[in-house]
Design a protein around this nucleic acid. Structure first.
Length: 956
RNA sequence: GGAUGCUUAGCUCAGUUUGGUUAGAGCAUCUGCCUUACAAGCAGAGGGUCAUAGGUUCGAGUCCUAUAGCAUCCACCA
């Protein structure tokens, strides 16, 4: 096949993928005699699109998968998508509002859910299409969706079983409430943000004529949330606070409301903070809730679902039961106001009544909902909880005893610290999109849990005339994804896939979802999946945690910052205007659009050039070191695209020179020293790459490959082969041996690199494998064998010989460049002081040097032989000299020699001081001392030579 | 407040687990080359007191202690 001169990946990548997929090559081999290797893809949001994080993680997963598939393992990459409850519902609601000016309530639950399914059909394929472009070799025939039938069945099963085991319960407790989305959210979905605020100091008048010990008729209470005083049920002071001891048990008149509230003693009140008096609002603050429980205070909910002031407070007793122990009165002036409007109004009124003592600036960190983006409100509601503290114990053990390993290990600590203080997990959401909770209520509010209404009736022996209503809430998205590794394999049925592929081998994911997902997956899986001996089964053996991909300045990539890079744009390229349009589309703040457009135009004046999938994947691997965040660098991508081009052209060279030959397996005797050298290096490269993949060090994988291909195979070996293939002295057998080695190594390199760069390697492999009889039946590198160390032989002698040849060539090139002699001038260098072995090597392999350094001969001269004026440089214990005739610039040469002398003198000095140090000589290992001695000797020899050369120059 | 990570060349990063010649790579820079695989290339060169201060050691980028700066996570904030 004729190859283009320039590497143009867009010409073949997509077609290649299509062929693979159509041939069903991504499926497991289901061969039970082979080891199993499986990965469950962290399910992306079904309507999402591929971002750099996905590309990064999927590249790593695909590399692992392809490697194991080539090893012959029974390999499954299980894929699928997540319904992403809140996120998806929000997108569709926004669309509905924008396009039809409707809310979900206008449509009703059923119709709204229909709309979401439609939206999913319509835009759900984006990310899976993009994954294909990335080369991800997932088994598409097994694709799952968290809301599909099988997975929904698993969710029901898990919920019902956990409920029956009392590991799920329903309770009225304080939860994080998102007033914008009007749903409860879990602790993890709360983000604390630092905001500037105020501290208001409010006077609470003492009732019944009581005075404090210092004669005041009020307590001064500091708060950052004055509006919540409508729900105050006490003011607390510390039990040992002498200032307030006398008023504990007395009553206060709640400002603006007039309700009487007690002064209670509780350790929550800190004597050193604020005034020492703290207002207690049990229904709207987590600490106050705990105080309320301890002091048996009533709880007053003053807010509606969307955080407006209620017309009348909801009053509950300490147990959370409706109660009328205190008045539910809320002053009319505040009813129906938004919580922040109410705050302003109340502060104004307090001021007017002289009850506002003063205001201070105060920085506080305020909890925000991570999706809704508004401050969350602690609210007293009925919700469903998982007893995470119980499920968490075995999950900690599994990591402690090594059944699950985090890579890098430092994430283990992060995991423990969270797991050791595990709060119960609030799993109910007041949304419509998601798995509906399988709970029914009778008219008295009694709850029944089973897989469906029919089962409820039989399970609880309910008469057919008992009226049942299903719980309207749905489950947290992470509830279904916590079951991902086993629900996708067919659980609760006992499938062969579960037996073959569970536990999965590795999980590749970002640190940001260790708590959301990884920890919960471990808990759920270990509870439901058991080994044959009944011990809990873990979901995966290794968790490889990746860092975040940031922009070149280290900022998080985000739509609002306009610094997002789409992996597909790097693969296929994008022009400047399209990139700008993409980055500024649908901006929340239109004024930002202009800024972003400007910056983008400056940074990408020509848009982004196509780089191809392989270059992107290789770059991602090269950057994947040790789980730290990555600052994305376009230059790096350019560099590795060039590397692809290098491979491409090296292959062109091989094909151009060898394709006419009929290759046969050569005899060892016909191999040149260069052939032996590259085979020996190849062996080492295979060993290194294999070890690095097993250690999850993809940066080392990339570096080893880069180094071997570019620096050994291309820079040296290809040049050596020219000397043989074009020589009239080499025999046909020798030419065959070299040509065969060229192809054999290239073919093996393609297999070595294939897990990282699937497309380029397939293309070249299809052309090289047939030449040496390695093409398989299916004509694909995908299931060709991964190279093994034993495929190639080590040859230390050849490596040493080649190193000497390289040194000679490099030294001559160096002298040529320093003396500014044109590369086209043939030189006739001399060598003085070379050992017999070196002389033999140089003579035997002169053909290689001739080419590489453009010389016509090397003359070996004796130490005392008188020579014409030369420039020279030491090489080991020997010396290379080049007669310069009138080309020598005397002053330049003296300067150069003096520089070398200075360096050598410094080295000798430090070497001598080291070796004359009694302590060093007596304590350092012999090997180190020998090394230092040898180095010192070498430096001295070289100094002598350079010194002599310098003298000669000066006398010229 | 608790914890973790980072600080190495102009830029982006390896190297630190297990201390040992003159600390590496890519990009960028400088010089010379269109040499029939590749100018997305070839050859050559310059550039780092490894954040700071102590300590351990014959020997520290690597181990220990402290400090500074940056980042992240958790908790708290009347």
């Amino acid at each position: 096949m004729e190859m283009d001169k320039i590497y143009t990946p867009e010409n073949f990548e997509s077609d290649t993928y299509k062929q693979w997929e159509e041939a069903g090559l991504f499926k497991p081999n289901y061969d039970e005699s082979k080891e199993s290797f499986s990965i469950a893809l962290p399910p992306p949001n079904v309507t999402g699109s591929l971002h750099m994080g996905h590309a990064f993680q999927q590249t790593i997963m695909d590399t692992l998968i392809r490697y194991h598939r080539m090893k012959g393992d029974n390999t499954l990459w299980q894929c699928g998508t997540d319904h992403a409850g809140i996120a998806t519902q929000m997108v569709v609601e926004r669309k509905l509002a924008k396009e039809e000016n409707l809310t979900r309530h206008d449509l009703g639950r059923e119709e709204f859910i229909n709309r979401i399914w439609k939206w999913k059909e319509q835009s759900g394929g984006t990310i899976t299409k993009q994954m294909r472009r990335l080369g991800a070799s997932v088994d598409w025939s097994r694709e799952r969706f968290t809301m599909d039938e099988g997975l929904s069945k698993a969710v029901l099963e898990v919920f019902v079983r956990l409920y029956d085991e009392d590991l799920i319960y329903r309770g009225k407790r304080l939860v994080n409430w998102d007033p914008k989305l009007r749903t409860a959210i879990s602790d993890l979905e709360v983000e604390n943000k630092d905001v500037k605020g105020y501290m208001w100091y409010i006077k609470y008048k003492l009732a019944d004529g009581v005075k404090t010990s210092d004669g005041k008729d009020y307590l001064l209470v500091a708060t950052t949330r004055p509006e919540t005083l409508l729900g105050d049920s006490a003011v607390a002071v510390n039990p040992s606070d002498e200032r307030y001891k006398s008023v504990v048990g007395k009553f206060l008149e709640l400002p603006l409301v007039g309700r009487k509230i007690p002064v209670v003693a509780d350790i929550h009140a800190d004597m050193t903070t604020g005034t020492g008096c703290v207002k207690i609002t049990p229904a709207h603050d987590f600490n106050d809730y705990a105080v309320g429980k301890r002091c048996k205070l009533p709880m007053l909910n003053i807010l509606t679902e969307d955080a407006h002031i209620r017309d009348e407070a909801e009053v509950f007793n300490t147990l959370g039961e409706p109660s009328d122990e205190v008045s539910s009165y809320i002053p009319e002036a505040y009813r129906g106001l938004d919580r922040f409007e109410a705050r302003d109004k109340m502060v104004e009124d307090l001021k007017a009544q002289g009850l506002l003592d003063h205001i201070e600036d105060h920085n506080l960190s305020q909890p925000y909902g991570d999706r809704g983006g508004v401050p969350i409100e602690p609210m007293l509601t009925d919700q469903w909880y998982v007893r995470a503290s119980v499920l968490g114990k075995p999950a900690v053990e599994a990591v402690k005893d090594g059944r699950i390993k985090f890579v890098p290990a430092q994430y283990t600590n992060m995991y423990y610290s969270w797991m050791n203080d595990l709060q119960d997990w609030c799993i109910s959401r007041q949304l419509w999109w998601g798995h509906r909770i399988p709970a029914w209520y009778d008219d008295n509010g009694k709850v029944y849990v089973a897989r469906n209404e029919e089962e409820v009736r039989s399970k609880y022996k309910l008469a057919s005339d008992v009226h049942l209503t299903r719980d309207p809430d749905v489950l947290d998205t992470w509830f279904s994804s916590a079951l991902w590794t086993f629900s996708t394999l067919g659980w609760p049925d006992n499938t062969k896939e579960l037996k073959m592929f569970h536990p999965t081998s590795a999980l590749v994911t970002g640190f940001d979802i260790i708590f959301f997902w990884v920890a919960r997956m471990i808990m759920m899986t270990m509870h439901f999946m058991k080994n044959e001996d009944g011990t809990p089964q873990v979901p995966f053996k290794t968790v490889y945690v990746t860092g975040l991909i940031r922009d070149e300045e280290g900022n998080k990539m985000s739509k609002s910052k306009g610094n997002v890079l789409d992996p597909l744009d790097m693969i296929d390229g994008i022009d400047r205007d399209s990139l700008i349009a993409k980055r500024t589309a649908n901006m929340m703040q239109p004024q930002m659009a202009e800024k972003i457009a400007k910056r983008t135009a400056k940074q990408f004046p020509d848009g982004i050039a196509p780089h191809g999938t392989d270059a992107l994947r290789f770059t991602l691997c090269a950057l994947a070191s040790n789980g730290r965040d990555i600052n994305w660098d376009m230059k790096r991508l350019d560099g590795y695209r060039n590397f692809c081009n290098k491979i491409w052209n090296a292959s062109r060279f091989v094909l151009m020179n060898v394709s006419e030959m009929k290759l046969t397996k050569p005899n060892v005797a016909d191999l040149s020293v260069a052939d032996k050298f590259i085979r020996s290096k190849m062996k080492k490269a295979i060993a290194d790459v294999t070890a690095s993949i097993n250690a999850f060090r993809f940066d080392q994988v990339a570096n080893t490959i880069y180094e071997f291909i570019w620096n050994e195979y291309c820079d040296w070996y290809l040049e050596f082969t020219k000397a043989i293939l074009k020589s009239d002295k080499a025999t046909a057998e020798q030419k065959n041996a070299t040509a065969y080695t060229l192809v054999e190594v290239l073919e093996a390199v393609m297999r070595l690199v294939h897990p990282v760069m699937p497309f380029l390697t397939q293309n070249i492999w299809l052309q090289t494998a047939p030449m040496i009889g390695k093409l398989n039946e299916q004509k694909t590198i995908i299931n060709a064998a991964f190279p093994q160390e034993s495929d190639f032989d080590e040859d230390k002698k050849a490596e040493a010989d080649i190193n000497f040849i390289k040194d000679v060539a490099t030294t001559i090139r160096n002298l040529r460049a320093e003396m500014k002699v044109s590369p086209s001038v043939k030189l006739a260098p001399m060598m003085r002081g070379a050992s017999a072995v070196e002389q033999a090597c140089a003579q035997d392999n002169f053909a290689f040097m001739e080419n590489l350094a453009n010389i016509e001969m090397i003359k070996f001269v004796a130490d005392n032989e008188s020579l014409p004026p030369c420039t020279s440089k030491p090489l080991g214990n020997a010396e290379i000299l080049i007669p310069m005739k009138d080309l020598v610039n005397k002053e330049e040469e003296i300067k150069r020699l003096q520089g070398m002398i200075d360096k050598l003198v410094a080295n000798i000095k430090s070497g001598e001081s080291k070796l004359s140090n009694e302590a060093f000589v007596s304590k350092a290992p012999a090997k180190i001392i020998e090394g230092a001695k040898a180095q010192l000797e070498l430096n001295k020899t070289q100094l002598e030579k350079v010194q002599a050369q310098l003298n000669e120059m000066k006398n010229l």
